[in-house]
Design a protein around this nucleic acid. Structure first.
Length: 315
DNA sequence: GGTAGACCTGGACGC
DNA sequence: GCGTCCAGGTCTACC
């Protein structure tokens, strides 16, 4: 099954795929001419999607013969992941007078690659905090390996987890050298485990209770995280709701706001401090206030201005 | 409201 | 190979 989706111009598939590191995190993987993603559909089917560039948009392809409803679901899913409907014309208009951002419109930069669910993006963001990028890759892969539904498992229902638990395999011996590709876990799959398993087997460390609590709140229905994707809330209200999630601090909130299309926040991590210090402070020690000040005049677009800035000394 | 210490892991480094 | 130190955000207790 192959389908072409149109995007609001200007659009560059490559610009979205390369917008940040998400493409390196399971169940994403790169292929020769695009991205692959193991998706779990609401019908319970787990299929591999191939996303690639197409004239005026993106092409989405699945190896499976999908029902009409499933095709519609993956089209909606891909549209969200690639931000096909996003209108960045106001940002481009503002950026055209800034030499350090002069290339963004031409390169169609501004869209950020997203996961299909906000749950997945929040978990991944928590797993980027206070660790190295290699640690993030490892923790996300472990969650997928341990709790994700198998690619070839089409028998489970919409609310069920994987039909066989890799924890059983761990108990009886090492995982196979070529692990089965799996989708990102449902909240329910993680909610059924415990902190000790997340610490010991997924090696999430002190983040384990944060991820477990988030999964359990969603699974129990006390938190409707996905509603925030389409809620037309002011940034401050969104920030307040995201900040209420354990493990989500100022950096994580700003990162998630960016993914939700709210760009009046800068995800200030140690790298941001380094970049801004080298750019404007001669490498001297600075704090978050200096980063905010550097981009304050970009107002509602300061997150995008920071993200796509042509740094003089980024190496 | 601001600050210090704890949290956990992996990588770098010295021995 | 082993032990030690440090970097990476957030939470909590305390002032």
């Amino acid at each position: 099954m192959k389908r072409t989706l149109s995007a609001r111009p200007p659009f560059s598939f490559r610009a979205v795929a390369d917008s940040h590191g998400w493409r390196q995190l399971a169940p994403f993987s790169g292929d020769a001419d695009g991205l692959s993603y193991i998706a779990r559909l609401s019908t319970g089917r787990v299929t591999v999607l191939h996303l690639a560039a197409a004239p005026d948009g993106a092409q989405i392809e699945s190896a499976d013969a999908l029902a009409e409803g499933e095709q519609a679901e993956i089209a909606t899913m891909a549209g969200w992941m690639l931000g096909l409907d996003q209108d960045l014309s106001a940002f481009y208009a503002a950026a055209q007078h800034e030499p350090k951002l002069a290339q963004v419109a031409e390169r169609a930069q501004g869209r950020l690659l997203r996961s299909p669910t906000l749950f997945e993006d929040v978990v991944k963001t928590i797993l980027t905090t206070n660790t190295t990028w290699s640690g993030t890759i490892r923790m996300v892969q472990a969650l997928v390996d341990l709790f994700g539904a198998q690619l070839d498992d089409v028998s489970s229902g919409p609310l069920e987890g994987p039909s066989s638990s890799p924890l059983d395999e761990l108990a009886s011996g090492p995982l196979p050298a070529e692990p089965v590709r799996r989708a990102f876990p449902l909240p329910k799959s993680i909610a059924q485990t415990d902190v000790e398993t997340l610490r010991r087997d997924a090696r999430l460390g002190y983040r384990a209770p944060y991820v477990l609590e988030l999964a359990r709140r969603i699974d129990s229905g006390t938190l409707d995280l996905e509603a925030l994707k389409t809620a037309e809330l002011p940034t401050d209200e969104l920030r307040k709701r995201l900040r209420a999630i354990k493990g989500v601090g100022p950096y994580a909130v700003a990162n998630l706001l960016m993914l939700l299309g709210h760009y009046d926040a800068i995800p200030i991590d140690s790298w941001a401090l380094t970049l801004v210090s080298k750019e404007w402070h001669g490498g001297a020690a600075i704090g978050p206030a200096e980063v905010e000040a550097a981009f304050a005049h970009w107002g509602q677009f300061k997150g995008l201005a920071y993200w796509f800035w042509e740094w003089s000394n980024a190496g």
